[in-house]
Design a protein around this nucleic acid. Sequence first.
DNA 1: TTGATATAATCAATCGATTGATTAACTTTG
DNA 2: CAAAGTTAATCAATCGATTGATTATATCAA
Lengths: 209, 209
Amino acid sequence: MDKDKIDKKDHILDVAERVFSELGFDGASTRTISGEAGVNMAMLNYYFGSKEGLFLAVFNRKIISFQDLLKNIGSDESTTAWNKVEKYIDLYAQRVVNNNCFQKLLYQELSMQRRGELSDKITDILMKNALEVRKILKDGVDNGEFNKDIDAEMVIATIYGTKNFIVNTPQLTSKLLGYDIQNDKMLEERFKPRIEAYLKTLLKSYLLK
Amino acid sequence: MDKDKIDKKDHILDVAERVFSELGFDGASTRTISGEAGVNMAMLNYYFGSKEGLFLAVFNRKIISFQDLLKNIGSDESTTAWNKVEKYIDLYAQRVVNNNCFQKLLYQELSMQRRGELSDKITDILMKNALEVRKILKDGVDNGEFNKDIDAEMVIATIYGTKNFIVNTPQLTSKLLGYDIQNDKMLEERFKPRIEAYLKTLLKSYLLK
DNA sequence: TTGATATAATCAATCGATTGATTAACTTTG
DNA sequence: CAAAGTTAATCAATCGATTGATTATATCAA
């Protein structure tokens, strides 16, 4: 039945996303993934063509919705630039909480600059997001809302980097923050409001005159 | 000759450090490392016992100078907390420029929480570093120099994270910043002063009353 | 509805390539 | 000579990928 096929592919993607996140692209073997998904190894290639195809499928499944949300924030003409920044921080924090595992995977894969389509695709997607944020910042400068001498690109690095550092080195930052970042409940109830409040205060004092 | 042996081992470590940084632990094969180092594959095991032994050797070689960084920063009682922060930013930026490759390797391995001994070792070192910075920040709060409601731990995440994001995703940030982060000359002449100025301005507006 | 048939899904088995590691022979050095 | 250094050749294990055979499902003529 068609419904079953979709469910099974989706199940494989779920498992693959988790295993990739835990072990990285190289560390996660197709045998491990198929084994944990409870399917035959050949099914991975049957459905997704190759290991890289499987990774790309995991990747593509995640990115579509976020792009649209981001675009909507930037295109809203009825609000201030600072309000857009706040909205983006909220959206981003929510995204991190919901896709903690995957965000780690993305950054990990991007960190080791590898050959081919995979890295290029990830770069393109993240670049699009980054440019969207930069446009918001530049607009804020142009309309006099933000300081004219802000370093927009570095601000982007700060937003992404602060989050990445925390979720990508959980054994370090959990000690530092005082609670377990890898625990979903802690992530939602303590980390999320904390990074939201922090980034807003930090950027507000830097961006606004 | 003993000198030659040391030089050769050191050369292998140099190459291994770079290749590990570029491809990760899994992605870097012993054949690639030995090939690029211009030595026979068996020499790696002859010198370092195993691939992991080689990795540990790369890591241990760097630890010593890492420790030195920790000592002299917060101990100066004759200056302000903000001045210490500025000094630390300068020192850190210098560190990044000089050890760009290794810094990448470090956080790559740490973000893949997979090994026992090595991961603990890295965590301990970085934790010591982080606590040193936190002490500076807390002292600044206690003597009324900094805002009393700053989030010290998140500030640390911002300092480390902003840097890490840029040097660990060079193909992305090079596009964003407009020059090649992987070029040493660019790193020294353009990126270093830029991140110094940015972090100082950013943190100044956030920390100081 | 039934039976034949075509398509999709799944399987065990195995492919060649590559991995980290090791061996044994050779060369250099002291 | 003996020890250290170095090499090519090779090891078992595992990698991603593919095969041909088998089962399940869908389609359609009678």
